[in-house]
């Protein structure tokens, strides 16, 4: 079930360093929202606050609210482990479990959730691999290690692993930056299909990619190195790339940044 994300007044810290400052935004269900901005502007940090992965980093700490539909992810008594089971994540570099087979990689999250019945696992693994457009390439070698696949296949395997547990939201942190153009295209097509079922947030350095895949785009920026990153604006992707309301956005998009 895709859910709406509602962020208000969110700041994140690494120890005493403030990485992002007072961010508020709404992400609609069954849509793709892209985060763009220069390196160090905090867009990945912000993404990681949406599934409470930020606090895994030593010294990582968050202030503010993230509502998933009506539930505050940072409410007292909310278990971060439970949050991460409903908000899936795909990382910059494909990171399948190297010691597991392709099948076990996809089944890993299901097993964590207590699904152990073989027939059920078989069904969901097949569905998920089909959903990630990987099934035809791996159906004959499900018991081979996932690390033997190509980079693009590994990334789709990671997507299959993330969607197997039917998350409410799918976060993608520069999912194509380690891939060649053909694999990138495959992932972008896949994102277009996945948004029918999930709320998708994607961080990207590639502005053409943001323009191609997203419905809405958020631009982040920082005043200077060492300053916290801020959300400059968020709007319909078309508008951001044609007629943004803030000058800084236009400068960044047209390459006049810095």
């Amino acid at each position: 079930m895709a859910k709406r994300i509602d962020v208000s007044g969110l700041s994140a810290y690494y120890g005493s360093h403030k990485a992002i400052d007072d961010i508020s935004m709404t992400v609609e269900p069954r849509s793709v929202t892209a985060f763009i901005g220069p390196s160090g502007c905090g867009k990945s940090t912000f993404l990681r606050t949406l599934n409470r992965m930020h606090e895994v980093t030593p010294g990582g700490r968050v202030e503010g609210k993230v509502l998933l539909d009506d539930e505050d992810l940072y409410g007292s008594g909310v278990d971060p482990v439970a949050v991460r089971r409903t908000v899936g994540m795909v990382f910059q570099r494909p990171n399948p479990f190297p010691t597991m087979s392709i099948f076990d990689n996809v089944a890993a999250g299901l097993r964590l959730n207590g699904t152990h019945k073989k027939s059920q696992l078989n069904d969901i693994v097949e569905q998920s691999l089909k959903g990630a457009n990987l099934w035809n390439e791996v159906k004959d070698r499900l018991n081979k290690p996932g690390s033997g696949l190509s980079g693009g296949q590994q990334q789709r395997l990671c997507i299959a692993r993330a969607i197997a547990v039917e998350p409410d939201v799918l976060l993608m942190d520069e999912p194509c930056s380690a891939l060649d153009p053909i694999s990138t295209l495959a992932i972008e097509d896949l994102i277009g299909e996945l948004k029918e079922r999930f709320t998708i947030v994607i961080v990207t350095h590639n502005m053409q990619q943001a323009a191609r895949v997203s419905d809405r785009t958020a631009f982040f920026n920082l005043a200077a190195v060492g300053q916290p990153g801020k959300l400059i604006e968020i709007d319909e992707t078309e508008r951001i790339f044609s007629n943004p309301s803030v000058q800084a956005t236009e400068d960044y998009i047209s390459g006049r940044f810095g």
Binding site: M53, R84, N95, P96, F97, A162
Partner: peptide, 13 residues
């Protein structure tokens, strides 16, 4: 590698 541990954490381990 941290990436392996994050893979598990992000799945809700």
């Amino acid at each position: 590698p941290a990436a392996h541990e994050e893979a598990a954490l992000a799945l809700g381990a």
